[in-house]
Amino acid sequence: MAEANTAVSEQNVPFAGAGTAETVQLMVTVNGVDRIFDAEPRTTLAEALRGTLGLTGTKIACDRGSCCACTVLRDGLPVCSCMMLAIEANGHSITTIEGLAAPTALHPVQTAFIEHDALQCGFCTPGLVMSCAALLEHNANPDQEAILDAISGHFCRCGTYPHVMTATLAAAAKMRGDDNG
């Protein structure tokens, strides 16, 4: 989604190449689309996503890896995009909240967050959704401890954790096909 108006790679550019004295050219597969862009080496992945790529769904709240609001998936694993350089995503696959589900559909975790009111102000929500969705990719039947571990680095001042827990359990049940999940 929201990819149409930006540069989409036509050729396969596996490594950083061009760039300027100050910048390097990167090729990152973002939400399934190869994106080529220039970035300074000091640019964090969060800054590149939000700035250069216009994907503002990823939030920066502490900018030090202490709140996990900026969580994205790198090759399927949740990482803090504020504590990773964009250049370290070069050649990797990044999934952001915008790319978690197709534009017209929602990921079961997103649906469950809505149904169980697992959000309030919503600023930490994209990161929490990414962490819970990543958990369910690897663990179809998580118990409370597994969910607590997955979200243990997140900080939500509104206090959505109890509803995040119920929503994630419900999403897992739904993804497994349990009837009364």
């Binding site: 890896g65 996990c68 969580t71 790198r74 694993l77 949740p78 990482v79 803090c80 504590m83 990773m84 962490s131 571990d149 997955a150 243990s152 680095g153 997140h154």
Partner: peptide, 9 residues
Amino acid sequence: AASPQIRNV
């Protein structure tokens, strides 16, 4: 240690 996000990196 830290969080899963940190431990992955």
